[in-house]
Design a protein around this nucleic acid. Structure first.
Length: 481
RNA sequence: GCCGGUGUAGCUCAGUCGGUUAGAGCGUGGGACUCAUAAGCCCGAGGUCAUAGGUUCGAAUCCUAUCACCGGCACCA
């Protein structure tokens, strides 16, 4: 069984933030869960590096766009490392292979690409066209000091309009499944209205930071159009074995701001290429900070590294997977994060491990004995992961953590020890170890490092006298009111 | 303006096909314990299920209207 998870590739025009981190983690859970089930997995992430914004930013910094791209992409790669993300690929749209394969894709789409004139409002200062819907009407009047110019430009267009109906049907029937449902409804209503053909190239004389249109040196591909192609080029479309084995994408992980590209334009491109559509598109939400939109001007941006450095990758993963709703927007605050860390990770899980290990050491010289097999029904957890409801999956795993603590308090192994019933005590402690190993398995996709730690403690049946605190307590962060 | 969603405990949210006394976590009050990271466990308080009608033997759940908030799309300036 082959399984291909593709994360959206972020535009690397700015520093990675917690939203990027969230997306990495979401994809990572899917990839790790699939691997755990014995599937062959390709999990791809990457960077979208072309386009006018990159060119402008680089110009401001006095470096080439290529230098900026390399610099910025490295920061995203560093974030993945810090979060223990298990991506198999990191594709950059400036990779030679991507550029060459993008040109092949363009050629294979050419029956749906035609040349036409684009007419629109052009913002001279920003050097870009302003879409009618976002244009400031005052500036449409020629006497305005910063008036737009009515410009005409020759572009290539893609016949998106020809495919909206097919795409709509695929989504409606769940052949191409969009989750959560509210996102499915949203995109269906867009598709029902029908979509216009889209401009997919830019003249080189205005922007040369892009992939050249094959056979026309005066045009480069429009960055969005070309970036979408990464999901194919990363597999080596059209001739590589990986493409043959792993296409179509099992789950596509994207943010809610880019549904249109992934649920309308991209599937239309695939239909035009005669390829199967992804099986599932998972649309996640955004993160607010203390209930407010994250923004540099408000100054409420928390860098992922601030959290990871203090609490570790698994704690970060835990909070964003369980306490940011998988189907909605969520909120980060240090208060919430620390409450989750202390109550759930340190006290409930960490302490369950600790007390179990301590009793085995104290009463049985570290010998656990025969550990019985796991006994819970974990099908609902598997289903939750499949539906990308990671928050629910973790809720259910935590029911087991709590259940174990309840079992310990009800069974009172310390009282059994005092009574001298060695056989019964051994049974109870082995059962505790069994529960913890089961929990470790369930946590594997979510908190991989923690899963390993728990296994290392109990798996061999002999507990070594190393003090292993899974989640040490920290000073809480003073919250500026 | 059109479409969709949401409104349930102080907070965040579950609640299936309409069916006993509406649930969980956090927070809060109390209790018993000692294996453990002052952790864990038990018990309690806390609800006009947004509002008003309707259908029904029976409504948080279905229908209608209203209000509030959120999202998407369109439009105007």
């Amino acid at each position: 069984m082959n399984y291909y998870v593709a994360n959206a590739i972020p535009y690397v025009n700015g520093e990675p933030h917690v939203g990027h981190a969230l997306e990495y983690i979401l994809g990572d859970v899917l990839a790790r869960a699939a691997r755990q089930q014995g599937k062959q997995v390709i999990f791809s992430t990457g960077a979208d590096e072309h386009g006018s914004k990159m060119a402008q930013t680089a110009a401001k910094l006095g470096i080439t766009p290529g230098q900026l791209a390399t610099q910025m992409s490295q920061k995203f790669i560093d974030l993945e490392k810090a979060l223990n993300i298990s991506n198999d690929r990191f594709i950059r749209t400036t990779d030679k292979a991507h550029e060459q394969r993008a040109q092949i894709i363009w050629k294979n789409l050419s029956h749906d690409i035609y040349k036409s004139k684009y007419v629109g409002w052009y913002d001279v200062k920003e050097e870009e066209f302003v879409p009618e819907s976002k244009a400031d009407p005052a500036r449409m009047k020629p006497d305005h000091p910063q008036a737009y110019q009515k410009l005409e430009e020759e572009n290539y267009f893609f016949k998106l309009s020809a495919y909206t109906d097919q795409v709509r049907q695929a989504i409606e029937s769940d052949v191409f499944k969009v989750v959560p449902k509210t996102r499915k409804h949203e995109i269906l209503s867009v598709l029902k209205e029908g979509l216009d053909d889209i401009s997919v190239s830019r003249p080189v004389d205005k922007l040369n930071w892009g992939v050249p249109v094959p056979g026309d040196s005066t045009q480069v591909m429009y960055v969005w159009f070309e970036a979408l192609m990464n999901y194919l080029t990363v597999l080596g479309y059209p001739e590589h074995d990986d493409f043959k084995k792993f296409w179509p994408t099992n789950v596509h992980v994207v943010g809610k701001d880019i549904i249109r590209f992934h649920a309308a334009i991209w599937p239309a491109m695939l239909l035009s290429l005669g390829l199967a559509l992804p099986k599932q598109l998972y649309v996640h939400g955004f993160i607010t900070m203390n209930g407010e939109k994250m923004s540099k001007s408000i100054g409420n941006v928390v860098a992922p590294s601030e959290i990871i450095d203090k609490y570790g990758a698994d704690a970060f993963r835990y909070f964003f997977l369980r306490h940011i709703p998988s189907y909605e927007d969520g909120d980060f605050s240090w208060d919430k994060f620390e409450a989750a860390y202390n109550n759930e990770l340190a006290n409930e899980l960490g302490n369950a491990v600790q007390r179990t290990a301590a009793m085995v050491m104290k009463y049985q010289n570290g010998l656990v004995g025969n550990i019985p097999p796991a006994e819970h029904d974990n099908e609902p957890i598997r289903e939750a992961i499949e539906a990308c409801q990671f928050d629910r999956a973790l809720d259910k795993i935590w029911e087991q953590v709590r259940g174990l603590n309840q079992y310990i308090d009800e069974t009172k192994p310390w009282a059994i020890a005092k009574a001298g019933d060695k056989e019964h005590l051994q049974e109870v402690l082995a059962y505790q170890a069994s529960c913890l190993l089961e929990i470790a398995d369930l946590l594997e996709p979510f908190l991989p490092a923690t899963a390993v730690k728990i296994r290392n403690i109990f798996e061999s049946g002999v507990i070594r006298p190393t003090k292993t605190t899974l989640f040490p307590k920290h000073e809480t962060t003073a919250q500026p009111k």
